[in-house]
Amino acid sequence: MTINLTCTQVSALLSFYIDDRLSAQLKQFVESHLEVCPSCRAKFEALKAMVSSLKEVHEKMTAVKLDYNSNQIPQQNEEFQMNLSAYVDNELSDEENIKVKKYVISNAKARQDLENMYNLRKVLNNSFEKTKNEAKEDYSKYILKRIDIQEEIYGSDSFAKVVALFIVIFTIFTLTAVIIFWI
């Protein structure tokens, strides 16, 4: 016996169908509906694509976890420390970011390492702020004055060039006049 399912009924059953959790008979009813109904088939394709991409991400994350776990003492591993440092600076790719995050969540020693890194950063920033505030000297007037002087020198320099050019032209002109007069 074949029961013709409605589109609403198929929609409700789709995710179970994709997970292969329907009875053999119900599965057959859904399949026969999908064969004749293009809109439900489109819904099915979209849902299937979404689920498979989610599965892919999940697999990637699991693989990442295994990757770090396969390393016995990753805290002492230079690469892990390097990634932890880049993680603090927000300079990792999404995948590496997940890798570090997952490892830090599951490992107390790595968590301590990360905390130490944040502490170091805090201490350094305090020191930098303090040093910045200690700088009392104001150089602005001095720098502007030096620029002014240089521009003056540069200005007089170009003036000297114009004068020199004028002298050269004048000399050439005089020499030519003298030669012509001589001839």
Binding site: F128, T131, K132, N133, E134, A135, E137, D138, Y139, S140, K141, I143, L144
Partner: peptide, 17 residues
């Protein structure tokens, strides 16, 4: 002048380290 004033503390601190 304002630009120099804003940056000088930072540069001074940088060279301190």
């Amino acid at each position: 002048e304002e630009l120099i004033k804003r940056e000088q503390k930072n540069i001074f601190a940088t060279f301190t380290y």
